[in-house]
């Protein structure tokens, strides 16, 4: 992992108009960056805006406000076709549901080669077939699978096809939106191991969105915790699990059941009450320790600091 920032998200906002006078602030001013070669985990409960963040970064939605810079260039705003194409090639997405994200009427080869054709990466069909077969082998499938349709595959195999499709255009950055939550436990490990292997071989950077915190801790270098459209805490994954500071992070961590009966018998759940926050001023994102950020007011900042030092 280098120190170079591959993706910089600044004060990103995504608001949806849901009625004449009602607006849902799905993402409400979040700032973070992702370094080249790292895996950044984004966790939170459903409705906290983690998926919206991913989708906004890759321009599936137009951001309400804020900026997203990829390798120093602004992703949002008006873009010409060729500029967009360039971004699309560098940034790819793996979706949650391997059943819904593959077109059932296309063969695996068609699905994977669509991106190759759009970006003109192959000259003829022979090259296309070769490339698709290579990709299938990279993700642990056989080259015979190229002529089949998605319904002939199991969930884990389909997710591999989705990964092959994302890899086809040789991206630098992959957004994985809950890539394993629809899979069985034993298959989840296969896919996670594959993602880790591909990261090493292709020098990929991941934004890994999930609600399964133990898996996120395992795969991520740094983790951001979201709550109601805001990022409440951001730290190295070890640090976040050892020294959670924000009460919401604490409550989230204390709620995860672990596969260890002895631990479970003694686990005490911490309940988060948003009303306990200091409301004297608007909370800000502050650095409480090197590389450990937390959303808090000045007063809370002092209190958290004290708590960390004890």
């Amino acid at each position: 992992m280098s120190e170079e920032k591959l993706l910089e998200v600044t004060n990103l906002k995504q608001h949806f108009q849901t009625g004449r006078h009602s607006i849902v602030k799905a993402v409400d001013g979040i700032t973070f960056d992702i370094k080249r070669g790292e895996t950044f985990g984004l966790v939170g409960e459903s409705g906290c805006g983690k998926s919206t963040t991913g989708r906004t970064i890759i321009r599936l939605y137009d951001a309400t406000d804020g900026s997203v810079k990829f390798a120093g260039e602004d992703v949002h705003g008006k873009k010409s076709r060729s500029e967009l194409k360039k971004f699309n090639r560098k940034m790819q997405m793996i979706f949650q549901d391997p059943y819904a994200s593959l077109n059932p009427r296309m063969t695996v080869k068609e699905i994977i080669s669509e991106g190759l054709d759009i970006h003109g990466l192959v000259a003829n069909d022979e090259e296309r077939t070769k490339r698709v077969q290579d990709l299938l082998e990279t993700v642990g499938l056989n080259k015979e699978h190229a002529t089949r349709y998605p319904h002939e595959f199991s969930g884990g195999q389909r997710q591999r096809i989705g990964i092959a499709r994302a890899l086809a255009v040789e991206p630098e950055f992959i957004i994985a939106d809950e890539p394993i939550s629809a899979l069985d436990v034993s298959i989840q490990a296969q896919v996670v191991n594959l993602l880790k292997k591909l990261q090493k071989e292709h020098d990929l950077t991941y934004l890994f969105i999930a609600h399964d915190l133990s898996m996120v801790k395992y795969i991520s270098d740094r983790i951001g915790v979201m709550y109601f459209g805001k990022m409440v805490e951001l730290a190295d994954s070890e640090e976040l699990y050892k020294n959670p500071v924000h009460p919401y992070t604490k409550s989230l961590l204390s709620a995860i059941p672990l596969p260890d009966p002895d631990y479970e018998r003694n686990r005490k759940r911490i309940i988060y009450d948003p009303n306990n926050h200091d409301t004297s001023e608007e909370p800000e994102f502050r650095e409480i320790r090197p590389n450990h950020w937390v959303l808090c007011t000045t007063k809370e900042f002092e209190a958290y600091k004290e708590e960390l030092n004890n």
């Binding site: 298959i187 490990a189 996670v192 191991n193 395992y218």
Partner: peptide
């Protein structure tokens, strides 16, 4: 063994998860 090994615990850090091969 496979099921237990395929789930990361909070202190299993660097080692690879044991995936049960196949389906």
């Amino acid at each position: 063994w496979g099921l237990l090994g395929s789930m990361p615990t909070l202190d299993s850090a660097e080692e690879e998860l044991i995936a049960i091969p196949g389906s």
